[in-house]
Simulated assay, not measured.
Amino acid sequence: MNARALSYVRTDTPPEDWLRLVDEGLDRHNYSVAPLNEVRQLAAFATDSQGQVVGGAVGRTWGKCCELLQLWVAQEYRSAGVGSQLLRKFEAHARGRVCSIFYLTTLSFQAPEFYQRHGYVVLAEIAGYPNGIVKYLMHRAEA
């Protein structure tokens, strides 16, 4: 294998098959060294009287860790406690899987204050996005 004989390509429009090769290669490596087959989806939803979803908390668990990937509440139900209920239901479900470490990322225009009210603390801030937007990595651990 001669690394000097390689060509390097930069692009704003990567071919789908190249993206797939990178994903598949990384997956093969990751699964060979970590028990990723133990990662499990987790979700909690709020529905109205017609059964329509008006909010949801979606994430995954792995070992004692629970990652919240998305939390959304329909505009007309915001500031009514729906998000708090979803977060509590989501976390309770994770506790049933022995999770005691909870984490997420959120942007400054989303809900960092909401998560802080629920005991999450900022572990890292990443600035440099347009319009002064900051990304936060947040965490909450239970004893």
Rank of each mutant, 00 (worst) to 15 (best):
A94N: 01
V53I: 14
A57M: 10
S7T: 09
L87C: 11
V9I: 14
A5L: 10
C66G: 04
R140W: 12
R20F: 07
F90I: 03
Y31R: 10
R140P: 01
A3E: 12
T47R: 10
G59W: 03
G81L: 04
V22K: 10
Y103V: 03
T106W: 07
H139A: 11
C99Y: 02
G59Y: 02
W62N: 03
Y136P: 02
A34E: 06
D17G: 00
Y120P: 00
G51C: 07
L26I: 09
G128I: 13
N30K: 01
R60C: 15
G63R: 00
V33R: 11
W18G: 02
E142S: 09
P14D: 03
Q52K: 13
V33H: 05
A141C: 08
P35S: 09
G56Y: 04
R4N: 08
L69F: 14
L6K: 02
P35W: 05
T105H: 04
C66M: 09
P130K: 04
L42M: 08
Q116H: 08
L21Y: 01
W72Y: 15
S32D: 05
V22C: 15
A34R: 10
S32L: 10
G59L: 07
V98Q: 15
S79H: 13
R10K: 12
E76V: 08
A141M: 13
P130N: 07
P112Y: 11
V53D: 05
V39L: 05
I101Y: 12
V58S: 02
Y120V: 06
L68N: 01
R20V: 09
H29F: 15
R28V: 13
F109K: 02
E24I: 03
M1Y: 12
Q116W: 06
A34F: 13
W62Y: 14
V58E: 02
Q41V: 09
T13H: 12
H93E: 09
G132C: 06
D27S: 06
M138V: 13
V98P: 00
L36F: 13
Q85F: 03
T61N: 04
P35I: 04
H93W: 03
W62D: 02
P15E: 15
E76Y: 05
A46P: 00
A3M: 09
L21T: 07
S49L: 12
L69C: 14
R40I: 10
E38V: 00
R40P: 01
M1D: 10
L107H: 08
V39R: 02
R95M: 15
A34I: 05
V58F: 15
T106I: 14
P35V: 03
E125H: 07
M1V: 08
Q50H: 06
